[in-house]
Structures are given as C-alpha cells and as structure tokens.
Design a binder for these strands. Structure first.
Lengths: 229, 229
DNA sequence: GTAAACTTTCATAAAACTGTCATACTTAGT
DNA sequence: ACTAAGTATGACAGTTTTATGAAAGTTTAC
C-alpha cells in the first residue's frame, strides 16, 4: 500500500493545502506542526514519505530530518523538503542532511505530486497506484491491465485512461469537454464528438461481462461512471 | 449552473493550486495571468465569480476589479481577492472597490472553499451543487441523478432542470412566464402552455413514489413546489 | 521501412426530447 | 346546472442528441 505521507509544517493553511492535494491524489496524510509532533510520528506504522518544511521556527526542520536519518527504522523513508523561493543554501544543506528532493513554495499541485511520485518510484518502484475494483471490474495501473472475473480485457490506451479516470471519479457526470480536459489533457484540440467514439470502444471492451452498463450516458450532460444501475 | 470561477494570478504555481482545489470541489476554473487575459474573460459565458490576486504586477489587480464593477453585465459578479498576510490597507481598498471578500495567502483549501461558497450563497442562494432532498425525493446535481428510496427516476433534461429549480426554490409560486425565464432561460420564445406539458412530464416521472403531489398547481397563478401537502 | 494498432473525423442510423395542438377535465361563479 | 376560464393529458411531427460503422490519417513497434 505504501501511501502514508507525513506532512510537517507550522503554518496551518499550507499544511491543510498539502493534505488536501495528497488526499485528492489517493495518499493518506499525517499532520505535524512542530518538532515534537513530527518525532511522535516516528512510530509504527511508519510513514512512507515525509514532506518537511525547512523553515520551522527555531530551525527544527533540519533537526527532524537528522532524526529520521539517524534511526535505523526511518532512515530509508524519503524526505522532500519545502523551501522558500531562492533559498539555495537551504537546498544544499537539506540534500546534505539526507533530503531526497525539494519543492519550492509556492508550489503547484502538479509539481508537488510529480516530485512525490518520482521519489516514491525511486524508493519503492511498485508502491504507487493501487488497483481499483468495481463490481468485479478491476483496473490495475501497475500492470496496466483490466480484468473481469480473471479474463483480461483488451482496450486501447485512450480507453484505458478513460476508464481509469472514470473509476477514480465515479458517481459524477462529466461533460465531453471535461473528459477531454482530464483524459486527453488540457489545450488539446479535439472534436467533442470524439469522446463518443471512445466511450463506445470502452463500452465494447468491457461489455463481455456486462460492465458496459457502468458507463452511463446522461443525455444533455455527458457521461457518468456509476456502480448504481 | 453557476459554477465557473475566473482565477487571476500571475504566479503559475498558485494559480494551478487554486484551479486544482476548485476543480476538486466541482467548480469549473478559467485561468488568467494578467490584466489582458482577465479582461478577455469578461465575455459570455460570464464567470460566476472571480478570484483575484491583488498583487498583480503593476497594480493591475485593482484595475481588473474596477473594470468588472463598471460594466453593466459583470457588475454583480462577486470578486474575492487574494492578499498577502497583513496587507490591511489592501483589504480596505479592495472592499471599497467592490470586492466581496478576501482570502489571505497562504490559504487552506477549506477556508478558500468556505469563502467561495459563502459568497456564492449570498449572491445566488441556489446555485451550489449540493444534493437536495425533500420528503425522500433526492436530486443530486453532481451525479445528475434523481432518486427516491434508492430507485433512480428517469426524466428528460428539461424536467431535471425544472425539478432542480423547484427544489432550490420551494414554497413559492411561480408563473409560467417566470418558470420559462428561470428554467428555459431568458429571451426564449416558447408558448406559456408548454410549461404545463413539462409539469405533466415531471409529475409523471416522480409519481411512482407519490412525489407528484409536491408539484402543486396554483390556479390562476402558476405552480409551486411544496412539501406541505 | 512496413505492418499493426490507434485516433480522429465523418456520415448515417437510432433514440430521446421538445414544443404545439386538440380535446377532456376542473373549478368558480352565476 | 350551466358557462367561462384555467388546467391536464395524449399524441405527433420536427429537432437535437447519441450511437455506431467505416474511412483516413498518425503513431508505434519491429
């Protein structure tokens, strides 16, 4: 599973923002606001990663990093430090102490998650992205496979991404435009109606076991993935 | 449906963070990074709200706010300004220019969304996309579904909008003309009596569990959605 | 460099939805 | 009761929206 992230920052708003982004991306967040609470999180179950503000009052950020790197059990837990823009010295010092990467404030969610995933991939290559299963339809991002009752279902890359998006955002209507944004990517010029065709292919691909009914048309609004039939 | 938010900030990371939080909360975000692109967004379909960084280079944040408050069509669009911590002067000036509220950077997603929802509620009390339930009849705008005791009720787009309008404006009579304005949209040429037909269709759709009695005829005046029977 | 696999667009068929009408019903007042 | 005005309802013909097969253009993998 390996998806627990310890967030250490003394500023509540920033901490909450980090937690929000992490949770929206399927991570579990543990919060700490100072040295003591961070150290208190150095117990089982150990976090799988630490997001650490370098600017903690009293310079305790660096102390926390050292502490993590000293202990036998927490040494290999990756640490990403959060630094203010331009504090080059801190970055150097941080990497010396054992931080694995750093993110500059302010950060975009995309950048943050990219760093986190990159670091996690480096440390434990297979821990990211767990399989999702709905009504016997199983999508495994790691093996990049969709199965149903043991049978592998064959589909193209776009259909896979579409299904992945749907399964991670169920019970919600998406317009064709929104789907293009989320699955195809922003500023991609593609006809709205193209979505129809891929929906069609996705349905066809998962139809053998009747899962096509999970992909529902909402006339005038778009499409929805729902286990409620 | 009132969920489009214009985000104006010159710093890409912050802008992306705002967009991320908004989209995760079901809003549609439009991005602008400077004065020109913000003004370019002052067209149909108008945004329903503006999140505006006060610290735009060249002080253009305040110019944008003024521009919005000057135009007939955008005057009533609420503006929430983003300010750095402690810039009390800016807050005062902002509120003078017509901003509706402000959020201090750094902000937590919870606070941000609370402000946005509060302002939206103040401006258009019914535009928030939360599920509404009356007497066991439940309408969920997110999944675009109407259910009653677990059963999904099937209806056309117009009936859905009509019901949505009714449920967000209960206990109040609306003439056929008013309903046309609110549900069909302004400057739409449609016979008054058409409303009757859609009322009929709506009633038929929600009748299975007896909810049709919630849609009441007020002879000589129009129709009313009321839980009082 | 070529074959295979994918994507996108297009054309057409199939569904679902709309606005109007004509007719049947109700209600309120005489 | 009878009438006039207002409402309910079923039907239908035209539109709009979706579904689908196939063609044309791209990318990917040997």
């Amino acid at each position: 599973m390996s998806r627990r992230v310890l967030v250490v920052d003394d500023e509540a708003p920033i901490r909450e923002m980090l937690v929000f982004v992490l949770e929206q991306n399927g991570f579990q967040a543990i919060e700490a606001e100072d040295y003591d609470s961070a150290i208190a999180a150095m117990v089982e179950p150990y976090p799988d990663m630490v997001l650490l503000d370098w600017m903690l009052p009293g310079g305790s950020g660096i102390q926390i990093a050292k502490k993590f790197k000293q202990s036998e059990y927490t040494r290999q837990i990756p640490i990403i430090m959060l630094t203010a823009r331009g504090e080059e010295e801190d970055k150097v010092k941080g990497l010396e102490v054992g931080a694995d990467d750093y993110v500059t404030k302010p950060f975009s969610p995309k950048e943050l998650m990219a760093r986190i995933k990159a670091v996690m991939r480096r440390v434990s290559p297979t821990s990211l992205e767990e399989a999702i299963e709905v009504h016997g339809l199983r999508l495994d991002p790691i093996s990049h496979r969709v199965t149903s009752a043991g049978n592998e279902l064959d589909m193209g890359p776009t259909e896979f991404r579409l299904l992945h998006f749907f399964m991670t955002h169920p019970e919600r209507v998406y317009s064709r435009e929104q789907l293009l944004d989320h699955v195809w990517g922003t500023n991609v010029y593609v006809e709205d109606r193209t979505v129809d065709v891929h929906i069609r292919r996705l349905r066809k691909a998962i139809a053998p076991l009747g899962h096509d009914r999970l992909v529902q048309t909402v006339r005038g609004a778009g499409y929805r993935f729902s286990s409620k039939v």
